[in-house]
Write a protein that binds this DNA or RNA. Structure first.
Lengths: 405, 405
DNA sequence: ACTAAATATTTTACCGGCTGAAATAAATAT
DNA sequence: ATATTTATTTCAGCCGGTAAAATATTTAGT
């Protein structure tokens, strides 16, 4: 019987090796067995066994074309291995206030279909929540002439505090209740495993598996949308904190008794750089029509409006300061800024980088790289899909052991 | 041949198990084999083998007294195992500006001797540095009627940026040169392995092994002395950052363009709560005689001096704010404040805790515990000793394999 | 074309650590 | 004394990984 929890715990040595090989192939693309062996510090014999299992499970396949530059002139040519994208498909969901975004991807992460399902209510009861998810998934499957049965799993991203390995939601802005165990409901409603995670963590997963964090071990992902989110990857693993409520980058305090934040506290970073903070500032400053967007403010600034310029300038300085705090504490390999183009052009300014540079404690080493990833509107759903692929991969590898002759 | 690098890497499965057993015995004290087996999720057979090796190496021993409350009325009684403190001794060193503090401890961490060796110069060349260390060690050994040969290892704590597993110092306030590889010098000068680490990390190690962090997996240690230090333990391991220069708690920015810090930047937390910051404030405020200490300021405040009260009040608020940022980012099990009594009474005030509470993002879960550890002046050296014991233990366990029949 | 050399992969025999089950040890209860 | 209970040890066996040998597939050289 399938257990919906699919953490790498309860995994024996053998499966762990299979999974390491699989993840390495995902990370590196086409690669030969011998390269995997040397990269993973494992004997070729072990890789032969592992890849044989993965091939027979349909997760990877051999491909023809010679890989990269072969330095060797003679000898048996290497056979490249690659993910077999067609082995299964999973869905990624992002629950927002008024819409559920769905993306269906194959095992390689290629988009197969995507869909937006409108929501009447931002907050739902658990059962309404789960049936909305089912409906959204059915609609998405219909787009690709398929049914739910074609899916191998789904991952669901929501804002809030989630215990991912138990599908337990301590609280979420999408649910009317607190402390909900969704695992039963989801199992009852969906014919495949479902995985719930905090949406920001999912973006971090996406960057790690498919994005700018590929192959990195210590990096931070800052998501910029209406608020500021943070995903922390340390030692290759998502760091969730002890109670799952860390990584609140938007609510670190950058000023004693500073600006009032949505969260009710004062001096939060988000209260200086969030959309709503900028809009409020401009509005309060008397000039706004009350309908401004961040893009409007940027336009005003470009056309010389001193007030708009000053608002954006301060936001940039505060953001740079916040980033420098992250560097001073985490010393990451890189920080990835993730968001839609429009929502944070003003947060990649020279202003920000200067502040960052001048706020980081001076050492010989160069600053961690700041990478910017301009995602489309499916960013969050793709993040969910990345996690879904990871979790379903774990399940499939576990099944290997059972089916092995 | 002894390699001075003693990281748990390059450790085979067998040794890892031995080490896990050893560390568990250290953490739990007197414990029976069967308890170890269930705690470590390992079969009793394995524990028998592991403990047999550890006993024959002299690292642990069986003791007579029945452990705790035996629920069982009948049956073979459990045999408790305990560290054998006499198996070896190590030294811990802390290099400060004008003194080298040395502590010699046995395998259980009990103090055998301690000594202060005055230093003429705060900054030394690498070779002067190493020979000062040797002299300090010899003097300490003389105190216990021993010679250097009785030591199994030494760990050295310095301020600065250190690559611990290579004994490489990128820079340190104790050395005249940058980017020094001390491993050769130390090997030449000392007849036992030496390990260099950043002093704050060593305090974190000490809290983890012997102090308030015993048994915890995710916690932070804030050291309070002239500056603010931070040690980060995540998932049971010291987190050092990618380049080794993270955990700069004292230099996170809590105010845009705020007070000037020793480091040359503005708005650092340390510039609000450090000794020198308080002294400067009071002095600049016109009232100081220029010779004040933090204790003086506290006295003034107690006797009603408004200026002193306000200076301490702001320091406390800023410190609470800084702590709340740590909680918001790391969500640790607990935060340990480590320092000498006198140096931070003003940082444990109600003020601080209120600020902390009101700055942490609200969730159902209770706040992480804030524990205070008032160490004596040997705190730093003890931290070093803790690390020394850990590293020497690793070496001894590695030797097990070699000597095993 | 054929053979030698080079390199990749697979097969095979084995090793090393862990485990379950059985044996043994050491206590209490009757 | 004997049975019962619980802890520890012993031992045969399993399981995953590995080195070495075997095999496969190519190019270089003649």
């Amino acid at each position: 019987m399938l257990k919906s929890s699919a953490s790498p715990n309860s995994m024996d040595q053998r499966n762990l090796t299979r999974l390491r090989v699989l993840e390495h192939i995902r990370a590196k693309g086409a690669i030969s067995r011998i390269d995997i062996a040397s990269a993973l510090q494992t004997s070729p014999a072990t890789i032969t066994a592992a890849t044989a299992d993965l091939i027979s499970a349909g997760l990877i396949k051999e491909i023809e074309g010679e890989p990269q530059s072969k330095t060797a002139k003679r000898g048996r040519p290497r056979v490249s291995l690659q993910l077999d994208g067609s082995s299964f498909i999973v869905a990624g969901l992002k629950i927002a206030r008024h819409v559920i975004s769905v993306i269906i991807v194959d095992f390689e992460g290629n988009e197969v279909a995507s869909h937006n399902h409108p929501l009447d209510h931002a907050r739902m009861t658990p059962s309404a929540f789960v049936s909305a998810i089912r409906t959204a998934l059915e609609e998405a499957c219909a787009l690709m002439d398929g049914s739910l049965r074609h899916l191998s799993g789904v991952s669901i991203g929501i804002a809030g505090l989630v215990e991912a390995d138990k599908n337990f939601v301590h609280w979420s802005s999408s649910l009317t209740e607190r402390n909900v165990d969704l695992s039963r409901l989801l199992e009852a409603e969906l014919p495949f495993p479902a995985f719930i995670e905090n949406d920001t963590n999912l973006v971090a997963k996406a960057e790690q598996h498919f994005g700018l964090g590929k192959g990195l071990r210590n990096f931070l992902v800052v998501t910029i949308e209406h608020g500021l989110g943070l995903g922390i990857v340390l030692d290759g693993k998502l760091y969730r904190g002890e109670r799952g409520c860390g990584a609140e980058f938007g609510h670190i305090k950058v000023q004693l008794d500073g600006a009032l934040c949505q969260c009710g506290q004062r001096g939060c970073l988000e209260a200086y750089v969030g959309d709503y903070a900028l809009i409020r500032e401009v509005t309060v400053a008397g000039q706004g029509k009350g309908t401004e967007t961040v893009a409007d403010i940027r336009d005003s600034a470009r056309s010389g409006d001193q007030r708009a310029i000053s608002v954006l300038e301060r936001a940039g300085q505060m953001f740079g300061l916040g980033l420098s705090n992250l560097v001073n504490l985490f010393d990451p390999e890189c920080i990835i800024l993730s968001g839609a183009q429009m929502s944070f052009e003003h947060l990649c300014s020279e202003e920000v980088m200067n502040r960052l540079q001048s706020g980081v404690v001076n050492v010989d080493a160069p600053l961690p790289e700041i990478k910017v990833n301009h995602w489309g509107d499916l960013m969050w759903a793709k993040g969910a899909a990345a996690y879904g692929i990871e979790q379903v991969s774990i399940l499939k590898v576990k099944e290997l052991a059972a089916h092995a002759s």
